[in-house]
Nucleic acid binder design. Structure first.
Length: 576
RNA sequence: GCUCACGUAGCUCAGGAGGUUAGAGCGUAUCCUUGGUAAGGAUAAGGUCACCGGUUCGAGUCCGGUCGUGAGCUCCA
């Protein structure tokens, strides 16, 4: 007997919920079944309807589901031969199920699950009866290609979730509601960090406060990369077609690129930084003694992503990659990959991000020999295993020029986004005929990796906003301190305090509006400013400030200089 | 790009199944208030109802298209 608390409990429970939903749908509409698995936090089922389903109809389906639960239909497992199963699907016009079964082995025993008049192909297991289903809710309606293939028909997918107790369902919905409040698009507007406009879909505009955060992230990045032995370059955004033909982007990436004509010649706006960096490398001779040569670039790239894939700052059409290309001896690869992994880990630790790692292998559209891919993939895998990093393999998801290790972070709703990536590349050095002079005085081909740590500044920024729910640690906060004079009479002293902080490089604002203290405090709290300094008679007489922290509240009086000293210390160590 | 939704003041949202000058709260401006830790009061300004076309005596409301946004699919940092 499986309960909801067992590891497979929620899966079984929600899988049964998806069957009950499918049964309800079949009772109400003319629909063919796709697939209906349980997923993290819920379930879905794909259907092909004669008439497209609209959102309002989810309520009707839910009501019908409740009736099926009322009926408390026993759920039985039924086994058939492949031929019997095919015949059943043919009779019931279940074309999609037919397709699935026809791909199974001829001698396979095929299991169905029956509840009342409804029967569905399924390996199970399931709850014993529909009456065991307690709290459930249908959440959304979306399109989904049959078998995830955009060339196959698009079905309609209904998402839902189910729990054994009403209270658990309510808590879940409440949690989702709370999570939505952290959405970077919402906070970005509320805190005036960035915007999007119809004039440039997918092209972000940074506002002054968003720009402060971005620059701090870049400063941190520069410091750490200098320490890690990187140099920095910048290459042009617009480059001649010939370069993209040479790099392979013209053949392999064209559909994502923007083009322009200059003096009757084709140019492309760079979708990646590597070709530009190749040209820089080729400007001189390189010795093996200079390896590994780590060349970083905060490169602004443009990619024509499909309109439906855009998502706030997470998925945009122009973004800055904190890129670097590392040129090295083949025997330095594993060492260098390890160093990059450590660098990525260090960065994510500073922000307190949890992440997971994937190894992406050769895609269908790719360059290079099987042997090269094999060797490159093995090298990445070796390092991951050596470092005892748990990872999943993402088959066929590599770049067209090489396999990669990807680092994924979660957004407020638990969706994961690829940020850091380490890509091994034996192609670009070939294409651009890169060489170095070895100990033997001869020219040799260097190995190369592309890597990013943040990934894209935009995406990382978005994840940071959601991670902190807008309450950035003090080193990142666009406004670090707000000074709140109590009345007009205290403005002169407030200005002096402001001046003192300002000259020390603190991002400070003076709220000298004709409002009450409570109002100004509230506003600063809403804007998530870390420190509020109230200045009145007491403070003016003693050259102090009344310190309030956004989380800790009123901290009492502090000498201005000692507050300033502590503040600078906190900024310095990147305290929260 | 595809499926289903959505698009009303800077923001959040009202506008019963088409009918005179499109509403509210927050925010903004001005004035009053000089108030010690999360919203003091008054007054005022702000809207081509995303855009284009159609139906109608009459469209924010109905229909079609375009653009944008959201959830998801495909794709990806």
């Amino acid at each position: 007997m499986i309960t909801f608390d067992d590891s497979e409990g929620p899966d079984v429970y929600r899988h049964t919920a998806s069957h009950v939903m499918a049964q309800a749908v079949k009772r109400l509409y003319d629909a063919r079944l796709g697939i209906g698995p349980s997923i993290k936090d819920g379930f879905y089922y794909d259907f092909q309807f004669e008439q497209p389903l609209t959102l309002e109809e989810l309520e009707k389906i839910e009501k019908q589901m409740k009736e099926i639960v009322e009926e408390n239909l026993p759920i039985q497992r039924i086994e058939m031969t492949r031929d019997e199963a095919l015949e059943y699907c043919r009779q019931h016009n279940e074309d999609f199920k037919y397709e699935l079964i026809s791909e199974l082995d001829e001698n396979e025993q095929i299991s169905f699950y029956r509840q009342g008049e409804f029967m569905d192909l399924c390996t199970g297991p399931h709850l014993a009866s529909t009456g065991q289903l307690k709290a459930f809710k249908l959440l959304s309606l979306a399109g989904a290609y049959w078998r995830g293939d955009e060339n196959k028909p698009m079905l309609q997918r209904i998402y839902g979730t189910a729990f054994p107790k009403k209270k658990m369902l309510e808590e879940y919905l409440q949690r989702m509601e709370e999570a939505r409040k952290r959405d970077h698009r919402k906070i970005g507007r509320e805190l005036d960090l960035f915007s999007f406009h119809d004039e440039g879909p997918g092209f972000p505009f940074y506002h002054p406060k968003g720009m402060v955060i971005r620059r701090e992230l870049e400063n941190f990045w520069r410091d750490e990369h200098r320490k890690a032995g990187y140099h920095e370059v910048e290459t042009p955004i617009v480059l001649n077609r010939s370069l993209w033909e040479q790099s392979g982007h013209w053949d392999h990436y064209q559909e994502n690129m923007y083009f322009t004509r200059i003096d009757e010649q084709d140019f492309a706006i760079k979708p990646m930084n590597c070709p530009g960096s190749m040209l820089v490398y080729k400007m001189g001779m390189h010795s093996y003694r200079d390896f590994p040569l780590r060349v970083a670039e905060m490169g602004l790239v443009h990619r024509h992503e499909k309109s439906g894939t855009l998502h706030g700052l997470m998925r945009v059409r122009s973004f800055t990659q904190d890129d670097a290309h590392i040129f090295m001896l083949p025997e330095q690869i594993e060492d260098e990959v390890e160093k990059v992994i450590d660098l990525v880990d260090h960065f994510y630790q500073v922000f307190g991000f949890k992440y997971h790692v994937e190894l992406s292998t050769r895609p269908e559209k790719s360059m290079g020999s099987e042997a090269m891919w094999e060797k490159a993939t093995r090298a990445l895998e070796t390092v991951l295993i050596k470092k005892e990093i748990t990872f999943t393999v993402n088959e066929g998801d590599g770049a067209f020029y090489g396999p990669k290790i990807d680092f994924h972070l979660e957004d407020c709703l638990g969706r994961t986004w690829q940020c850091g990536t380490i890509q091994l590349d034996f192609q670009m050095p070939e294409k651009f005929d890169l060489t170095y002079i070895g100990p033997d005085g001869q020219k040799h081909r260097p190995a190369m990796i592309h890597r990013v740590v943040y990934g894209a500044m935009e995406r990382f920024f978005a994840l940071l906003i959601e991670h902190y729910a807008g309450a950035f640690p003090i080193w990142l906060a666009p406004v670090q301190v707000v000074i709140v004079p109590i009345t007009e009479r205290h403005q002169e002293y407030a200005r002096a305090v402001f001046q003192r902080l300002w000259e020390e490089g603190i991002r400070v604002e003076l709220d000298d509006r004709n409002e009450k203290v409570g109002f100004k405090i509230r506003e600063a709290q809403v804007k998530k400013v870390p420190y509020m300094l109230v200045t009145g008679d007491k403070e003016e007489e003693t050259n102090t400030v009344a310190v309030r922290h956004r989380q800790e509240g009123d901290l009492g009086l502090s000498a201005l200089e000692s507050f300033l000293h502590d503040l600078k210390e906190k900024i310095q160590v990147k305290a929260n």
